[in-house]
């Protein structure tokens, strides 16, 4: 119970900071929106190309915005050496990890709703198989947030962290991008049966990264 309380304490702290600073609202959401709009303009001459490309473009927009959200999540820990405050707090490394990853995941979910609506409107996509889309989005978002949080803390103490985080995160989340895109494609094509193996891959990835992150985050926070 205390563990969950600590997770909530860290997550609510990060979400409160984001709500007040409005970085997510003023930078991350517009960035995701601009990516979607630019692709729409770039491919607009061939309207038949947009719907099949939509899942991939949607997840590219989410991935790029996720890098901003992850960077932001650890930048706030560097000001005033708040990171040392976290280390001194007595909180378990695992609960800090789950709290920070949960906060990033919530931000990404909100972003996905906004970008999703933009994709439906601009790319002429009809949402189908809502359950598959929802399961794939949840599992992929958790996988993205958890992976980013692990690598975010690893690079957190370094001056080159803003360059290093994308370099570390992008290769690591390739399975998430592949699985999420394929699951969305199958769902939007009206063949949800083909999507479930990809959803299972996303769930397995998320479980693995969350478990590894819960164990590794504490030592990484100490060493970074």
């Amino acid at each position: 119970m205390n563990y969950l309380r600590d997770v909530w304490l860290v997550a609510s702290k990060d979400l409160r900071i984001e709500r007040r600073s409005r970085v997510a609202l003023q930078q991350i959401v517009p960035f995701g929106g601009i990516v979607v709009v630019l692709f729409a303009f770039a491919l607009n001459s061939d309207r038949t190309l947009l719907p099949p490309a939509a899942p991939g473009l949607f997840w590219v927009a989410i991935l790029l915005a996720a890098l901003l959200a992850i960077g932001r999540s650890f930048n706030v820990e560097e000001s005033n050496r708040a990171r040392d405050g976290l280390r001194l707090s007595g909180l378990d490394g695992g609960s800090i990890f789950l709290g920070k990853a949960a906060a990033v995941a919530v931000e990404l979910f909100l972003l996905e709703v906004v970008v999703g609506v933009a994709v439906v409107v601009l790319y002429d996509v009809t949402p189908r198989s809502a359950l598959v889309l929802l399961c794939a989005a949840v599992a992929a978002t958790i996988g993205l947030a958890a992976t980013g949080t692990v690598y975010g803390v690893l690079a957190g103490g370094l001056r080159a962290r803003e360059t290093l985080v994308p370099l570390l995160v992008l290769p690591a989340v390739t399975p998430v991008m592949l699985g999420a895109t394929r699951a969305f494609q199958a769902a939007l094509d009206g063949s949800p049966g083909d999507a479930w193996p990809w959803v299972q891959l996303l769930i397995a990835f998320a479980v693995l990264v969350v478990a590894a992150g819960t164990v590794a985050f504490g030592p990484l926070l100490e060493e970074a």
Partner: peptide, 10 residues
Amino acid sequence: GHETFCYDDL
């Protein structure tokens, strides 16, 4: 310490 360990936006 020299730093406050606090968050600017809280």
